[in-house]
Computed example of a mutant assay.
Amino acid sequence: MTLEQFTREDGQLARRYDYDDGTVFAVDFGTDGTNATVDLVDDTVIVVLEDDQYEIELPKTGEDAHTFIKNGVLTIELEEKR
């Protein structure tokens, strides 16, 4: 599922920020997300939240991806390769 499908189907609040050197996505899981974990496998972000698992496919843009979750907010940073 893409980030757009994920937020539309599950009602998550998400924002996209475009910068000269990359893109940042922020997804707010709310207070339930404070115990969530995140992992990145190839071009897929995997979020585990209690008994639920979400898989978000990243665009295949040739950018390096970094993910982390803090206080229920998932951050996905896509840095352009130089």
Rank of each mutant, 00 (worst) to 15 (best):
L74F: 06
R82L: 14
G62P: 04
L13P: 00
G22N: 08
V48E: 15
D21R: 15
Q53E: 15
N71L: 06
D32S: 13
Q53G: 10
Y54T: 05
E55Q: 08
L49F: 06
R82A: 14
Y54H: 11
T75N: 06
A26Y: 03
E80W: 06
T61A: 12
V27L: 05
R15V: 13
R8N: 08
D28T: 04
G22W: 02
G30I: 02
T31F: 08
G62Q: 01
T31A: 11
R8V: 05
G22V: 00
K70D: 13
V45H: 02
E79M: 07
G62C: 00
F68Y: 15
E55D: 08
D20K: 09
Y54D: 03
V38L: 04
K81G: 13
V41C: 12
R15K: 15
Y19H: 08
V24F: 11
E4L: 12
L78T: 02
A65K: 09
K81P: 04
F25Y: 11
L49Q: 07
V73E: 05
A65Q: 04
G72Y: 11
V73G: 03
Y19S: 06
T34R: 09
V24Q: 11
T75G: 06
I46C: 03
V45G: 00
L40E: 01
Y17R: 10
T34A: 07
L3P: 01
K81R: 15
D21C: 08
E50A: 11
D51Q: 15
V41Q: 13
V24R: 09
V73P: 00
R15L: 13
E77W: 10
I46S: 01
R16Y: 09
L78A: 07
A65V: 12
